[in-house]
Design a binder for these strands. Structure first.
Ligand SMILES: [Mn+2]
Ligand SMILES: [Mn+2]
Ligand SMILES: [Zn+2]
Ligand SMILES: [Zn+2]
Lengths: 140, 140
DNA sequence: AAATATTTTGTATTAATTACAAAATTGTAC
DNA sequence: GTACAATTTTGTAATTAATACAAAATATTT
């Protein structure tokens, strides 16, 4: 929790109680939560937390590059405290979002370019969709 | 237009007037249009077209793999009649969505896998964000 | 032509996100 | 420490993309 404070500060984000709680949640829960999920989880410890604060904070985190804003789920935005290069997979059956790291997908890192032709790149999102192992084995 | 009919039929889609007009529009306009843009464009020639039909049809096209549903734009879904493997780039300044093909990004095709570990893949979406050449040169 | 299945349409609803301004908190100057 | 300014948080209202639903229209089969 103390390190969360320094982490935010070092990225130019003033570490308020709300911001630390939200960042902390993202760092501890690598489930790619939605705004609703984060909100419900934090409400017990931050009873006055407003959704607007949550939206503003997550936008801020994304701008300052301490969180990823994922558009993999067509219904809602999801967030990720892990900003290292990695891809995502969403199961169309259970809706779960899973990480795909370089060991599973060696080509991955080479897609993180700063420039492609004339285009200046600031972020990359690689999204797979399909059926996860758990759901595929349900019809047995 | 006649070939559009066969194209839909061969993909198991009954070629109604609305469906042909929508598919036709996607094949002719490689601008990654939103639902609103498609609707406005088709309204003059199909005055009774309903948004519900448009949403249903685009969902059908996506399911039948004759169109891509793009989540690159966080505000709204965009559609693409080009279903060949390619990546996309959205300019954060002008909002335009551009194609990135294999000649610009040779690693691209190798990401289109059918399986990654235990995960069965049915689609891939690769989205870059940044600033396009036109917008980068505006501050001169 | 009658019966059946499919597609289209219009309206109402849902739900994620944004806009906005007041209230609260924090930081700075004296 | 009080006063003032800047920042952050909050609650409410508004927006808007997307979906639900059932009636109307159209196409297909018998
Ligand atoms: Mn992740
Ligand atoms: Mn494209
Ligand atoms: Zn699953
Ligand atoms: Zn641009």
């Amino acid at each position: 929790m103390e390190q969360t404070k320094d982490y935010l500060s070092s990225h130019g984000i003033r570490p308020s109680a709300q911001r630390m709680a939200i960042m902390d949640y993202l760092l501890k829960h690598k489930t790619h939560p939605t705004v609703e999920e984060i909100y419900s989880a934090l409400l017990p410890s931050l009873p006055t937390l407003s959704k607007t604060t949550l939206y503003n904070t997550l936008k801020l985190f994304s701008d300052k590059k301490v969180a990823l804003m994922l558009n993999i789920d067509e219904h809602t935005t999801r967030f990720d405290g892990d900003v290292k290069p990695h891809a995502h997979f969403q199961c169309q059956v259970c809706g779960g979002v899973y990480d795909i790291f370089e060991d599973e997908l060696p080509e991955l890192t080479s897609l993180y370019k700063e420039q492609i032709g004339e285009l200046e790149i600031s972020s990359v999102e690689i999204s797979y969709r399909g059926v996860c192992a758990k759901c595929a084995n349900k019809n047995d």
